[in-house]
Amino acid sequence: PPSSSTVVPPSLPPYFIKGSIIQLADGELKRVEDLKTEDFIQSAEISSELKIDSSTVERIEGSHTSPNFAVVQFSVGEHRAQVSVEVLVEYPFFVFGQGWSSCCPDRTTQLLELPCTKLSVGDVCISLTLKNLR
């Protein structure tokens, strides 16, 4: 049966603020709002430890703990493992071929000035796993 886990990230990290400088695996520097799908894919290819996994959004619901949080359920990788993540509604995820998306893009844009679209069921987000588990 698929496993399930819940991860609660800390409060909104500073690197999502528009203008933040991000270093790719090849050393290139880019602003967070300028990142493209290829940047993540190429960085993961260079990385010896990390690989990109696709995480499909299966469900989005409000959190029981706070109206500021949402629970996003993903189906991760080829094994379609079920992973639930509790995040702030403005927490951005990177959607393949689309860019930054969050449960509440208006708040993301308001708080971070990061251009953002609405995260929806069926969206395929970029996530990471370890290349070699053993």
């Binding site: 991860v7 690197y15 991000i22 270093q23 967070v32 990142l35 996994d53 995480s55 996530s127 796993t129």
Partner: peptide, 25 residues
Amino acid sequence: NVEPRSVPVFPWHSLVPFLAPTQSD
């Protein structure tokens, strides 16, 4: 005279959620 402040640089992988589901095999 204002000293230039160093701009923080964040690694690319910090922006991506690390989702490591338990492997069944």
